[in-house]
């Protein structure tokens, strides 16, 4: 019956392996998205300044803001659309105001469309890089963005949309507040 034990062991190993694999999918997914840029998240670029060269063609850039469900802040771009030149530094900002009467921390997540523009947007400064944005009750702030769109941007892209969503970083597990305390995140 040694054979039988061997098969059982192998199969149990496969079960364990696949269980671990399911968790491995999490970092793999991030790595995959990073390499291919398909989830459209722009991360901080190390040598972003090197993209600042001669001015290239004109493109239009559009900013969108979203409040995730349960996020009461006022949050909007200072300019919704503007014409910019590739290869040139561009600065803009988002306006945020804590409309509640308690101190809150927000997290911003960004996304780019079309997603293949992602690799050509070099951000030098962005509030979305910070861990969280703390605002006192009623406090308002201008959140800066400094970026440059690389001259290598594919010719067919004439319009880029940058979208930012803010989340209440404490609320994440707390939305169905009428339920029991099980759902309050730690």
């Amino acid at each position: 019956m040694g054979n039988k034990k061997k098969i059982i062991l192998k199969l149990s190993g496969a079960v364990l392996g696949m269980y671990l694999f399911s968790f491995l999918l999490v970092p793999l997914y991030d790595v995959f998205c990073d390499i291919t840029g398909i989830n459209g998240k722009v991360t901080q670029t190390k040598n972003a300044e090197s993209s600042i060269t001669v001015e290239g063609r004109e493109i239009s850039i559009q900013f969108i803001s979203h409040n995730n469900e349960g996020m009461p802040w006022e949050f909007k771009p200072s300019e919704r659309v503007s014409k910019i030149k590739t290869g040139a530094m561009y600065e803009t900002s988002f306006y945020a105001k804590n409309t509640t009467n308690k101190m809150m921390t927000a997290v911003a997540v960004n996304s780019v469309a079309p997603s293949n523009a992602k690799d050509f947007i070099k951000k030098i400064e962005c509030f979305c890089f910070q861990g969280g944005i703390d605002l006192m009750p009623g406090e308002e702030i201008l959140l800066p963005i400094k970026m440059v769109v690389d001259n290598e941007l594919p010719k067919n892209i004439k319009n880029i949309v940058l979208s930012y969503t803010i989340f209440d970083s404490n609320l994440e597990h707390n939305i169905t507040t009428d339920h029991d305390s099980d759902h309050v995140g730690s």
Binding site: L11, A14, V15, L16, M18, Y19, F21, S22, F23, L25
Partner: peptide
């Protein structure tokens, strides 16, 4: 054998979230 553990992983992640 290949996919039930992945389902278990998915619900475990939900549990942790």
């Amino acid at each position: 054998i290949a996919v039930m553990p992945v389902l278990a992983g998915a619900v475990t992640m939900m549990l942790m979230d």
